[in-house]
Amino acid sequence: MNNAHMPAPPLLPPPIAPGSILSLDELRGPDRYRTECISRAATQALYLGDHTVLSRILGRYKAYLDTRDRGFAAHVMLDGYWEIWLTQFIARLIAPGMHVADVGANFGYYSLLMADLIGPSGRLLAVEPNPPVVEMLQRTLDLNGFTSRTTVVAAAAGSGEGEGRLLVPPGEPKNATLVGGGAGGDEASRVSVPIHSLDALLADFPRVDFLKIDAEGAEEDIVLGLSETISRWRPRIILEFNPGRCRHPGELLALLRASYPALQCLGFDALVTPVSDADLLDPTNHEDRLLYLDGAASV
């Protein structure tokens, strides 16, 4: 058999030596499975007492986590990563020197990644309302050496300035939600928190390049409090959207399309595709969507 015209086999990426740190280039790479495997192999968790674990995540960072958190921390402690499609999308999008915000920062998984990607010349705003989670978030950023490039705000983002009640479901702090006086949950699970608009929090930023907004139903008010920033900078935005958690989902989409006509959705393949209002408002679809807003995208 003549092999002269046979295509050469694809080059395999070099193996990662045991104990190596996952590079940002590896994280950005096209091989999702490889990134997941490296993260799992590098994962370690050390129990420090008082429901606190110090865990290695994404094969690069060290993070403080709460052992009582079933919805997020339990997975990250074992796998070393979370929502790998969004993780890789952010890793490919953010560049050194950018000015970015993580709204609904939780324990700081994405804040860590974003702070690393922007480098010492960039700037990160991390917004998280849950007081004990904010404490761990700040400790994690300090431990990884990102304090000087990060501002942590212990508050909820909203349409303006005020105060609200945060309902924190047991074992699910990532699902903490601003609630009214008649909402469910006992009083012990509610916390009074300040509310600030992102326009106010970002007022002294020389520019705003990217925001990740995941606030369990508060996205509608957050966008209303972001109008000046959008008008001035047209930042790229990842925004969680679920019509079942919006007061007026159609009006929110119309407001977004006024500045970002080409709405897109981020898929599990870490790629974005155009999406229609009809699809987003489909009452039979109860899944959270990740909208990607890019002022440079064509309709």
Rank of each mutant, 00 (worst) to 15 (best):
1 M>C: 10
4 A>Q: 15
4 A>T: 13
9 P>R: 08
11 L>Q: 15
12 L>D: 05
22 L>F: 10
23 S>G: 12
24 L>Y: 05
26 E>W: 10
29 G>A: 15
32 R>V: 13
35 T>E: 04
36 E>C: 11
38 I>E: 01
47 Y>F: 12
52 T>V: 15
55 S>G: 06
56 R>W: 06
62 K>E: 13
64 Y>N: 01
68 R>W: 09
72 F>K: 00
73 A>C: 13
75 H>E: 12
75 H>C: 06
75 H>L: 07
83 E>I: 09
86 L>R: 15
88 Q>S: 11
95 A>Y: 12
97 G>E: 04
108 G>P: 03
115 A>T: 04
121 S>G: 07
121 S>I: 11
133 V>R: 01
137 L>S: 06
139 R>D: 12
141 L>S: 03
142 D>E: 15
142 D>W: 14
144 N>K: 09
147 T>C: 06
148 S>K: 14
149 R>N: 11
150 T>W: 02
151 T>Q: 12
153 V>Y: 03
165 R>A: 05
167 L>E: 10
173 P>Y: 06
174 K>G: 08
176 A>P: 01
180 G>T: 09
183 A>P: 00
185 G>E: 05
188 A>E: 10
191 V>Q: 03
197 S>D: 07
198 L>Q: 04
210 F>A: 03
216 E>Q: 14
216 E>K: 00
221 D>T: 08
221 D>W: 00
223 V>I: 15
228 E>S: 14
231 S>H: 10
234 R>Y: 05
235 P>A: 06
240 E>R: 06
242 N>S: 14
244 G>Q: 11
247 R>V: 10
250 G>A: 05
252 L>T: 03
256 L>Q: 02
257 R>L: 04
260 Y>A: 03
266 L>V: 08
267 G>F: 01
271 L>R: 15
272 V>L: 01
275 V>T: 07
279 D>R: 14
281 L>H: 03
282 D>L: 09
284 T>H: 12
284 T>D: 09
285 N>R: 15
285 N>P: 02
287 E>P: 02
288 D>A: 07
295 G>T: 09
